[in-house]
Amino acid sequence: MLKKFLMAGLVAGTTFAFAGQALAHGDVTPQAVDTSGLPKLGEEWEETNPFREDGKYKARAVEIGSSAYNQNCARCHGLQAISGGIAPDLRYLEADYEGDEWFIERVTNGAVRDGKVYMPKFVGTISQEGLWAIRTYIDEQPED
């Protein structure tokens, strides 16, 4: 009887231990992004997304942005930018200057309320090219 009780306890303990791992957000530290194939944009921030227009770099920006978004943003903003309610649904971010201005503000400063970090700063870990690639990927997600 004691053996069955101990075995049941071991199984339950193991289940709870792995369940905690499955429900964890994982590493919330911004992960660097390989931007090979995109032009260097320099130190000063572009005011609007330089990869938004169809052209030589848009497809590469979307490809890089997809990977970078999934590594850095999806855990809170949802796969394909479809929010599950934790953070804003980025599909509704305007694809113009105003949306770009909000995007720059958030990736530069993060989001902190009452001393709690809701979104980390990404500048300094992810280059301007990588962040604009994420923005380009978000712009490509359908709203419906």
Rank of each mutant, 00 (worst) to 15 (best):
K4H: 14
A8R: 13
L10H: 10
L10E: 07
A12S: 11
G13A: 05
F18W: 13
H25A: 15
G26L: 08
A32Q: 02
D34Q: 06
D34F: 05
T35N: 06
T35P: 01
G37Q: 07
L38K: 05
L38A: 08
P39G: 11
L41I: 06
E43L: 12
E46D: 12
T48P: 01
D54R: 13
D54L: 13
K56D: 03
Y57K: 03
A61I: 02
V62H: 02
E63Q: 13
Y69Q: 00
Y69M: 01
N70R: 09
Q71I: 03
N72M: 07
C76S: 06
C76M: 04
H77A: 06
L79Y: 13
Q80W: 09
I86D: 07
P88D: 01
P88K: 01
L90S: 00
L93Q: 03
L93A: 05
E94M: 06
G99M: 04
G99D: 03
I104Y: 07
I104F: 11
E105L: 14
E105M: 12
V107Q: 00
T108C: 10
N109F: 08
N109T: 09
G110M: 07
A111M: 14
R113T: 15
R113P: 09
R113M: 15
G124Y: 03
I134Q: 00
I134K: 00
R135M: 05
R135Q: 04
R135K: 09
T136G: 04
I138C: 00
I138A: 00
P142M: 09
D144F: 13
